[in-house]
Design a protein around this nucleic acid. Structure first.
Lengths: 210, 210
DNA sequence: GACGAAAATCTAACGCCGTTTGATTTTAGC
DNA sequence: GCTAAAATCAAACGGCGTTAGATTTTCGTC
């Protein structure tokens, strides 16, 4: 009962501290430098100037810390998407801008892609991240994709179609990014962005042709 | 230099044994029962009636053992795809059958999907699975997808277009499966297979309209 | 300004993991 | 039946996420 907003465990009413932020930043650094595998709790603690155990005062688990980093990542992504949409004119341009900005962000930041795949996948068992944190990440993601749906609506799609189009763009970008990131896609002789552009154009064609 | 075909490490010229097969089967069982996380080397060894160390006589690493399991998985997938294609008539039907069989296999066997994502992703560092094993898996995958390309060619696509279409189907299926498997896709209110069917129909439309 | 409780951190360990070393058993050719 | 190779085992190593309990730091109150 009563799921708290942030961390409290031993500390009875620890607020969102500057120290928390320091740890998240350290985690982000180690993660960017060493990748997911190298970003052990011990390495993160060392980077932040702590002992591993100290981190558990501020976070419930390694997953929870990662979730915090992923939250920041999605926020940055959302800014990038919104910026791209803001500088686009027509609904068709907004659609294309949003979808490609989403794609380009992860193409340019493979570490964020790793983290997203890892955490959205379920990460480490069994501690998981609670339902509330899970939902928060889902909502952040949906907010990020919202401009795609919005552009589809502006192009005449109904609500269900717009949902479908948004979901499909998300799925397609995920698949292409996954393949490209895995370096499996070179095998078939097409660039990742070409595939994404093709998807966007196809959806636009369909929408513009009524 | 000289990369051998199968395992030899301490055993100087160990051939492909029935014991190897037993271990692979045990790994497959544990993996199906417990999932990727539960399939520790110790658990697999216990299932096979061995001590953990004994497995290293037959396989270079846990990765190598997993690669063997994945190889079997891809072979089964390929059979499913080929069977679906064989019972299809027109090129358009073959295209649809191949792509949907690929999708359906992983939708029905999420453990195989886990394994594929895990291993094709890079799995555990740093031992990796050598280049030759990597290439073998890539080729098996390409052979599995070949009917999709074949149908596209039969529908009038040139080689480059057929490659692109095959790659895109692969990427799209991967993304949709990933999302569905992650249970992220319900959020947007569309079924996974609907998305896959939509992709297939779109590609067919494009091909049939010249 | 000292005291005492709460917050924050540390030391040490637990149980798991993949893997390696070196001894030991099994197997099979002679 | 001997012996060398193949196959397996027992034990340990270093790393992981995590936890328990002792210890230090912080800070409001007297």
């Amino acid at each position: 009962m009563g799921e708290g907003a942030t961390s409290r465990k031993r500390g009875r009413y620890a607020a969102t501290d500057a120290k928390r932020e320091g740890i998240v930043t350290a985690a982000r650094s180690v993660f960017e430098r060493e990748g997911l595998d190298g970003a052990s709790l011990r390495a993160i603690a060392a980077e932040a100037g702590y002992t591993p155990a100290a981190l558990y005062f501020h976070f419930d688990s390694k997953e929870a810390l990662y979730a915090e980093v992923l939250g920041r990542s999605i926020a940055t992504l959302q800014e990038a998407v919104n910026a791209a949409v803001a500088s686009a004119g027509t609904p068709a341009e907004r659609f294309s801008a949003a979808a490609l900005a989403f794609f380009d962000f992860y193409a340019a930041n493979p570490r964020d892609l790793d983290l997203g795949f890892y955490l959205f996948r379920g990460g480490m068992r069994p501690h998981g991240l609670g339902r509330e944190r899970d939902r928060a990440l889902n909502e952040a993601l949906e907010a990020t994709l919202a401009p795609i749906r919005g552009a589809a609506l502006a192009l005449g799609a109904d609500a269900a179609q717009a949902d479908l189009i948004m979901t499909d763009a998300f799925a397609h970008a995920s698949g292409v990014l996954l393949l490209a990131h895995t370096r499996r896609i070179r095998m078939f002789g097409a660039s990742a962005r070409t595939l994404m552009e093709r998807h966007v154009e196809t959806e636009l064609d369909r929408l513009l042709r009524r």
